[in-house]
Design a protein around this nucleic acid. Structure first.
Ligand SMILES: [Mn+2]
Ligand SMILES: [Mn+2]
Ligand SMILES: [Zn+2]
Ligand SMILES: [Zn+2]
Lengths: 126, 126
DNA sequence: ATTTAATTTACAATTATTGTAATATGATAA
DNA sequence: TTATCATATTACAATAATTGTAAATTAAAT
């Protein structure tokens, strides 16, 4: 697959790369519209998929309600706030090797650690 | 909250407890209908929520497409097949403690390890 | 310049889940 | 027992995120 780095795609990639909040597609769409008022939601989804296919970003399965995107394609872990769904990176290596027997016959390709907790902001407002 | 163990709820709990496939709400609904042909999808969702609130089962955020339910309320980990979304348990303890600094100010309440891989069945069909 | 493939857009459709409100159930009190 | 009252179930509608379709646009390749 040859993929074109169109102005829309260039913008979205640039936006993502400087955003550490792990935005949703809607978040990206809202910001992108400031530069391309006519950009469609579908283009945002398409672009996020293309960038993901090309290992420039990664999609997270961490927020029950919506997909979230991370500008860092390298494997790493996350903490999610159970109150406000804020997501932050954890750049640490954990020893989570599974031996043959415990892998239940699966061919393991990777693993992710997800931490659940309450963020500083949500901790304040009790 | 006082919760009634109605026939519908009793059935759903019983079904779940003997199902190790981490079924979706729809999966549960389909099986439940064999015993209660008039049971509504909403009752299934309500029941799954009630059982979860009462720590009898747990809901997993692991499958992009739908909620999945696990009959074991105790913390444990999972492997998910990236081909067919099959989920199996991993009953092992991993050392994933985060020190104060790495927790980014979050009050950590728990953590989960998710393994990604290809299940034996999907491995066959290549 | 012409052809061709990729991309964007508007818009519709899908899918899982949640909301609403009427009815039914069943526990408790009179 | 019968009346009362909270809880649960159901049918049905609504929501929200995402995906599908197809026409129009863009830009690469010939
Ligand atoms: Mn990240
Ligand atoms: Mn499980
Ligand atoms: Zn928070
Ligand atoms: Zn599989």
């Amino acid at each position: 697959m040859q993929f074109r780095l169109t102005p829309q795609r260039m913008l979205i990639l640039k936006l993502l790369k400087k955003d550490t909040t792990h935005p949703s597609a809607e978040d990206v769409y809202k910001v992108a519209k400031k530069n391309f008022p006519n950009i469609s939601f579908k283009t945002v989804y398409n672009t996020l998929q293309v960038l993901q296919d090309n290992r420039l970003i990664q999609e997270l399965i961490i927020d029950r309600r919506k997909k979230r995107y991370c500008p860092d394609p390298k494997p790493h872990h996350h903490i999610i706030c159970t109150e406000c769904n804020k997501v932050v990176d954890v750049h640490l290596k954990f020893n989570t090797r599974l031996n043959e027997k415990r892998a239940e016959g699966f061919k393991i390709t990777g693993s992710k650690v997800t931490f659940y907790g309450v963020c500083p902001e949500c901790n304040m407002t009790v």
